[in-house]
């Protein structure tokens, strides 16, 4: 709930107006390095889209990721790379470039332009997504890559065979118009 409030404040939304809300979305990342594959998921992706302004905000707590190969891998993920104790929240906030009529059901390819905050470093990105609007329901699917260097996540030389320089991220979130 704290996260959602944070998102609302980022978007500077009028809570009286109706928005698309996602309480539980899925986010998955994949690091496909030569020596080790890391694949972790979180079902706690939060998101909000304001159809009036095309604004949006997504966030996820790094600590909510599950499914590491080992406890050691998970520990490294949080302590060495993400530094989750300092930067627990990764977020993406901005505006959709396309003008979409959310009241019309259908499948749309949209590009979301915003600030991607990972590891406390904010980078502007355009992320392409497919959205399917079905009345009051909407699903958002997206795949994108995050080059670690862009977010000051440095990989020790010794383990660079174990962590890909670019992490593939997949999002699958269901929204409700409230």
């Amino acid at each position: 709930m704290v996260t959602l409030l944070l998102l609302l404040s980022i978007l500077n939304l009028n809570t009286a107006g109706q928005t698309w809300k996602c309480q539980k979305g899925k986010i998955e990342f994949n690091s496909n390095a030569p020596l080790e594959v890391i694949n972790a998921k979180s079902a706690e992706l939060k998101g909000i889209i304001d159809p009036a302004t095309s604004g949006f905000a997504f966030s996820v707590k790094n600590s909510s990721f599950r499914g590491f190969n080992s406890a050691l891998q998970e520990e490294h993920f949080h302590e060495s790379y993400m530094e989750s104790h300092r930067y627990d929240v990764s977020s993406f906030t901005g505006k959709i470039i396309e003008k979409i009529d959310f009241s019309k059901s259908g499948i749309y390819t949209i590009r979301a332009k915003g600030k991607l905050n990972v590891h406390g470093v904010e980078r502007e990105r355009i992320i392409q997504s497919t959205i399917q609007v079905n009345g009051q329901q909407m699903s958002v699917k997206s795949t994108f890559s995050v080059p670690l260097a862009e977010h000051n996540i440095s990989i020790p030389k010794l383990v660079h065979q174990k962590i890909a320089e670019e992490i593939q991220v997949k999002i699958n979130a269901d929204f409700v118009f409230q």
Binding site: I97, E98, T109, R111, R125, I126, I127, Q128, T143, F144, S145
Partner: peptide, 8 residues
Amino acid sequence: QREEGLPK
């Protein structure tokens, strides 16, 4: 081909 998609 761009991951970000191209303009419309």
